[in-house]
Design a protein around this nucleic acid. Structure first.
Length: 916
RNA sequence: GGGCGAAUAGUUCAGUUGGCUAGAGCGCCUGCUUUACACGCAGGAAGUCGCAGGUUCGAGUCCUGCUUCGCCCA
């Protein structure tokens, strides 16, 4: 086996975790709970890339919190998605030649439930494949028994409070789905249409007025023509009558500020039953509301001979008829925004009907305050403005839908006295007249009426359950910003209304997943890959890693195969590094430690001791750290001397990484947290540390202690990566001989404070710089890789020489040189390739290999660059305004840099001289 | 029409409190089958930080205006 293959491993661990009961909150933990409620996916939908991103982020957070020792709860659930599901089921029935209205409500619902049961298994299985550590024992569905109770309770309470009312109102109506929808479900799209100028003759025969309209077919519903009351040229016509063409009706000219003298012709036809603005005008002037269409958008008996035509057919026919009568003044092309139903794409018809509404203004007040005062934090913060803007202009919410799949509104009408009763359960008789003849409201509630209760309905509300007491308010909500109004804002309002507390402490908005061309992934475009196929090919860890690591907070992400390769390649890298280290462990036959010694549940590295302790007794401190991670002792006894330069450097860097990762997790910068570990592991642990210790790993006498450091490095890396890549890290953890129990509920190490081994870290960085310079030199000069040769390092003082002495074998190893030697001062070796790394001059004396002209040109170029920079720096430092105003450390830094570069320039000049 | 955001290497993006000789992934170029890994390693090229002003000793970062693109709302 040469590459990591996730197949089988992922399923194995998911089952093991579930069986071990690790997904629920640990009841023994006393810390503050960390709670996330999963935004419920549509139960009849399938998982798409957006879910993968959101779920990966949530699982990363919840796994991190769990490993930090907090009782972590992530509640799963699905949404009944009223309209979407009703559409799917209707379509299925249509394919069988059935019509839902013919089969009736009960039969339809029965079928919808069967469908729901089928698809529910699919979507939850997909979520499992992703590795989500959800507490399945608490799974909820928006239409299950418990949630139904919550919905009914909420409705009745609001009704009793007088916040729910029923009114005849112009609503957004979908003529395709035959239901009202809320304002938020209307999607405006730019459409190329026409502006028709129609002549309406004055009834007294004294001429005509011209109105401009984009919808001539609604003229049959006109009740007036409006002009602005102050319009100097037209106001004299107010009070006159016009003859409505193609009909025998006469309508008045009225004065209303809705008509803008600057726009169009200055005259506006008023159609109260078919236009929201006209509806308001109609109310102001008590105009007749003439409905000229059926709910399906077919012209009705009001339109005379045009009856029976569809909306757009009628438009054509009306225009033709008016043209024939000489009443079409002109036609202009006109681009305008037209409302479409976001679910089915059909053009919305403003339609006059009796609907249920919820008054929003009072509900909004505490919700606005909570966000404004930081009680609820939004990440990224810029969404606060968007939220405020919507909340401060909030409009009443149309909550009734003319559908069957949903929560039937808990209102009964008395057949005898028309009393209206809202109740938790069907009342036996009418409380007003005692009649037993009661009929329940036919309409169901908007889907979001159940979702907005989600943070607390999932925890048992309206009952005061232990879960509700312990886990509400929840910690963080993770969602895409496109549902900030539909859902996020409404959840905040609901929680304050029913619980008198916030629903969550923070909201983390993530971006939208787009394809390589920047298009939103959608079913209709067919550009959304099936996540399961991706997981099959690349592994869930690779997908999660790529998504989390490459997604800056709240930014949209462009998704492609290349993106996935980053994650897949990284998985392989972790696997390969583990193989290298453990291969040596096996050869060495080291003891695994006592399985009974369990490591502590939490680990704060700083509590083991300050940086000074690490400097003074590193072996003892290391042993303490080992016990904190594995329990027990390292595989081999080790003394302070066993911890070499590279060991101390990597331990210091490991702690820096722990600290940075924790800080970024706290700030919810998940990408930075993951990326930091990625960089550490790949470019420091593998590229430098493992390369540096290879000879020691092969040396039977030396490998015991160094294996301890390497295995600890692996273990800590697994821990830091586990929240993002749970499967591979759990698998490889189980391979480490000293590991015990599940990585999933082991400790996530924390570290704050001064990182130990500052001198060793600086020394190793110097090694890296020297090695880098030698490698560069070899490459630039085209030295063959097989040619090893000597490296001469010249330093100005004996002190620096002795400091470098110990690192010479390491430098030779990493730079692939035969040997490296250090000299103090003296003549430049020549001919030689030369470079400068800090105070160290590097010479590669390679007779016959170095092209003198090439080398001189190279040095000249480097020198020119440095001199250019120094000129600028000197100018800056001689500017008194700079030295006077800038903080001391900034000035000092410039001085240091200048000195450093001056020295380097001097050395480069000498080298050039030496070359002749 | 109103609001929000973005503009930095070929490309996707970092750059947090103004101190930067502006970084990373992918791509590109050169070299390497080095006993974990070619899903790899080493080295390299590549930028007028959208434009124009301003504040400041100092601006990718703050302010004003403009341009282009994206999103949301009406």
């Amino acid at each position: 086996m040469s590459q990591y293959a996730p197949g089988g491993i992922e399923e194995k661990w998911y089952a093991a975790w579930e069986e071990a009961g690790l997904f629920g909150p640990d009841p023994d933990l006393e810390d503050e709970p960390f709670v996330i409620i999963l935004p419920p996916p549509n139960v009849t939908g399938i998982l798409h890339m957006g879910h993968c991103l959101g779920n990966s982020i949530q699982d990363t957070l919840i796994r991190w919190a769990r490993m930090r020792g907090r009782p972590a709860l992530w509640v799963p659930g699905t949404d009944h998605a009223s309209i979407a599901t009703e559409q799917v089921v209707s379509r299925q029935m249509a394919a069988e030649g059935l019509d839902k209205r013919e089969v009736g409500r009960d039969a339809f619902l029965e079928r919808a439930w069967v469908w729901k049961e089928q698809t529910h298994g699919r979507i939850t299985q997909q979520i499992r494949r992703l590795g989500c550590s959800l507490d399945w024992s608490r799974e909820a569905f928006t239409m299950d028994e418990a949630r139904n109770r919550a919905v009914t309770e909420a409705f009745v309470r609001l009704k009793e409070k007088g916040l729910i009312y029923r009114d005849v109102y112009l609503v957004n109506w979908c003529p395709h789905d035959l239901t009202a929808i809320s304002d938020d479900e209307v999607e405006y799209r730019e459409v190329e249409g026409h502006l028709w100028h129609l002549k309406y003759p004055l009834a007294d025969g004294s001429g005509h007025v011209t109105v401009a309209t984009t919808r001539p077919e609604t003229m049959f519903g006109d009740s007036a023509v409006a002009v602005h009351p102050n319009d100097p040229e037209r106001k004299h016509l107010i009070g006159k009558m016009v003859k409505l063409p193609l009909t025998d009706r006469e309508i008045p000219i009225i004065g209303d500020h809705h008509a803008d003298p600057e726009k169009g012709t200055g005259f506006v036809k008023i159609t109260p039953a078919h236009d929201p603005n006209d509806f308001e005008v109609g109310r102001r002037h008590d105009l007749e509301q003439v409905i000229c269409m059926t709910p399906a958008g077919i012209m009705n008996e009001q339109v005379g001979s045009f009856a029976g035509l569809g909306r757009s057919e009628c438009r054509k026919a009306v225009v033709e008829a008016l043209e024939k009568d000489g009443l079409l003044d002109k036609t202009e092309k006109h681009v305008h925004q037209v409302g479409h139903h976001d679910r089915c794409g059909h053009i919305i018809e403003p339609y006059l009907s009796r609907q249920w509404f919820l008054k929003m203004e009072d509900l909004a007040t505490p919700a606005v305050k909570a966000v404004a005062e930081g009680e609820i934090k939004l990440f990224p913060e810029r969404w606060v403005g968007v939220y405020d803007n919507w909340m401060n202009n909030i409009r009443d919410w149309c909550i009734s839908r003319q559908l069957w799949w949903g929560h039937r509104i808990p209102v009964w009408y008395c057949d005898d006295c028309s009393e209206e009763i809202a109740a938790l359960a069907e009342p036996g008789k009418c409380p007003a007249c005692g009649s037993g003849g009661l009929t329940q409201e036919e309409d169901v509630l908007d889907t979001w009426f159940s979702s907005w209760l989600w943070t607390f309905s999932t925890l048992g509300w309206p009952d005061e359950t232990p879960d509700l007491k312990k886990f509400h308010p929840t910690t963080v909500l993770v969602t895409a910003p496109d549902i900030i109004f539909f859902w996020v804002a409404r959840m905040i309002m609901a929680s304050y209304e029913f619980k008198n507390e916030k629903p969550f402490a923070e909201v983390l908005f993530h971006g939208i997943v787009r394809d390589e061309e920047g298009r939103k992934m959608s079913k209709s475009l067919g550009n959304s890959p099936d996540p399961i196929l991706i997981i099959d090919e690349y592994g869930s860890d690779a997908l999660r890693c790529s998504l989390v690591m490459l997604t800056p907070t709240g930014q949209d992400i462009f998704f492609s195969e290349t993106t996935l390769e980053v994650g897949r390649n990284f998985c392989n890298k972790i696997f390969q590094a583990t193989k290298l280290v453990l291969g040596t462990w096996d050869e060495a036959g080291l003891p695994a430690g006592n399985p009974a010694d369990m490591p502590p549940r939490t680990l704060e590295i700083a509590t083991l001791g300050p940086a000074a302790d690490w400097a003074e007794r590193p072996a003892e401190m290391f042993t303490g750290l080992w016990a904190g991670i594995f329990g027990g002792n390292p595989p081999a006894d080790l003394s302070d001397e066993d911890l070499r330069l590279e060991d101390r450097w990597i331990l210091g860097r490991l702690m820096d990484t722990v600290s940075g990762c924790g800080a970024n997790m706290e700030k919810r910068r998940l990408n930075d947290a993951a990326y930091g570990v990625f960089n550490f592991f790949r470019h420091e642990f593998c590229d430098w540390y493992l390369e540096a210790i290879k000879p020691r790993l092969r040396d039977e006498k030396e490998r015991g202690p160094v294996l301890g450091v390497a295995v600890l490095g692996l273990a800590v890396s697994y821990k830091l990566l586990h929240p993002v890549m749970p499967f591979i890290t759990e698998e490889l953890w189980s391979w480490l001989p000293p590991s015990k129990g599940f990585l999933m509920n082991s400790s996530f190490p924390g570290f704050k404070g001064e990182t130990p081994f500052a001198p060793e870290r600086a020394a190793f960085e110097q090694v890296m710089e020297i090695v880098g310079a030698i490698r560069n030199l070899r490459n630039e000069l085209g030295v063959q890789p097989g040619k090893r040769g000597r490296a001469i390092l010249r330093v100005p003082s004996a002190g620096e020489a002795s400091a470098l002495e110990g690192a010479l074998p390491l430098i030779a190893l990493l730079a692939k040189m035969e040997n490296a030697e250090v000299v103090v001062g003296g003549e430049d070796p020549s001919p030689a390739g030369a470079a400068v790394a800090g105070s160290v001059e590097i010479f590669l004396p390679m007779e016959g290999l170095v092209d003198l002209d090439k080398e001189k040109a190279r040095l000249h170029k480097e020198l020119a660059g440095i001199e250019g920079w120094m000129k600028g720096c000197r100018a800056k430092l001689s500017n008194e305004k700079f030295t006077g105003n800038a903080p001391d450390h900034v000035v000092q830094k410039q001085k240091d840099l200048l000195a450093e570069n001056e020295a380097k320039a001097g050395k480069l000049k000498e080298m050039l001289d030496a070359l002749g």
